[in-house]
Simulated scan of single mutants.
Amino acid sequence: MSSNDKQPSCDTCHQVFFTLGTLRRHIAVIHSTMERPRFPCSFPGCSKTYLYKRHILEHVKIDHAKNPVRFPCTLCGKEFKTRTELERHIPTHTTEKPYNCATCGRSYANRGNMISHQKTHLEKSTRPVSKCHVCPQTFLSSRGLQYHIRAVHESRRDHPCEFCDKRLSTPASLKRHVGVMHVMNKGLIRSCDKCEYKSYLIDNLARHRMRHNPARHECYFCRKKFFSFGELGKHFSVHTLES
């Protein structure tokens, strides 16, 4: 734990905090290796657990209230459970990216995404990682690990499309789905420079281009190789179901 005249920061992941108290809570929750008791939600049918009782109260107020407060986006009408979620959503309607990486200058609309990106500049041996308890895959953020467990090992689809009945496993996959299936301006098409593949999304085109290179993500169990971590993660379920 380190601090300067301005703001304290975490020695492990370098995240900056406004107070020493929030930094200490961050270290205790995110980086502690000790098993800590969790408090389960008592609402029927809910299996969520929390480290702090106050978080249960917040969860019940947001998710189980009879008339829950929702924060609508005035630009698209989408509703959010908290004001913070709404504030993170607003930049998706603009080109504004106010958060810049101090190392490479890359810009982000969301501060959390910028912090996750900054970890990629650390030496691999010093990067803080979150390990999956089911398979050998590791992640640079606890949020990435949570998405992985829900999507790959629990087969959860918690992100519904507002334009159709399809449900997706992560916000990123939902964004890709909307960009491909419900794109408003179909004149914005992008082409691969090595084949005839076309897509409306830059992310899809980037993933496709990886397939023009040798697969490099190797399975820990059978040594089969895949083009992306996502494909490798889905493949892991074959081995975990067998064991």
Rank of each mutant, 00 (worst) to 15 (best):
V29G: 00
K66R: 10
I30W: 00
S130K: 00
F80T: 12
D11N: 08
T33A: 04
G179K: 11
C132S: 00
C219Y: 00
C13K: 05
S116R: 03
Q137Y: 05
I189Y: 07
T82C: 11
H55C: 08
L20E: 04
G187R: 01
I56V: 14
H159C: 03
R167P: 05
C46S: 00
R190H: 03
Q7Y: 12
E196W: 08
D158I: 08
V152Q: 03
H14G: 12
P44C: 06
P91H: 09
V16F: 02
S116P: 02
S9K: 14
R207V: 10
R143L: 12
R106Q: 13
F163E: 14
S199G: 13
H177V: 06
D158R: 11
E218T: 11
H153L: 11
H59E: 14
H14A: 13
K61N: 07
H217L: 03
T19K: 09
H133E: 15
K6L: 14
L168A: 05
K234N: 13
S32D: 15
T74M: 08
C76D: 09
R190N: 08
G233M: 01
K224D: 05
P98S: 01
M181Y: 06
L241F: 09
L188H: 14
A172C: 00
D5K: 12
F236L: 07
K48Q: 01
H212G: 12
K66P: 08
D193K: 09
R106S: 13
F43L: 06
I115C: 02
R157D: 01
K225W: 04
A151W: 10
R143K: 15
D11C: 04
R54H: 15
L232H: 00
R127N: 05
T95F: 05
C41E: 01
F139Q: 02
K53W: 06
S228H: 01
Y220C: 10
G179L: 12
R70N: 13
F17Y: 15
V69Y: 04
S199C: 11
A102T: 09
V238N: 10
R88Q: 15
D193T: 05
S3M: 10
N204Q: 01
S32I: 00
N67A: 08
R127L: 12
L51T: 11
L174C: 14
Q146N: 12
A109L: 12
C13E: 04
H235G: 04
H208I: 02
I115R: 02
G230D: 08
K224E: 10
R216A: 10
H93M: 10
L168W: 04
H117L: 11
R38C: 03
E79K: 14
Q118E: 15
T12V: 15
R24E: 13
E87I: 05
G230A: 10
L86P: 03
T33C: 03
E154H: 09
C161Y: 15
E123D: 15
F43S: 12
K53D: 04
E85C: 00
C46E: 01
F71S: 09
R38P: 07
C13W: 01
S199V: 06
C195G: 07
R54K: 03
Y147E: 01
H117Y: 11
R156D: 14
D203E: 14
V29S: 10
F71G: 04
K234Y: 08
G105H: 01
T94S: 15
Y108C: 06
L57Q: 10
P214T: 04
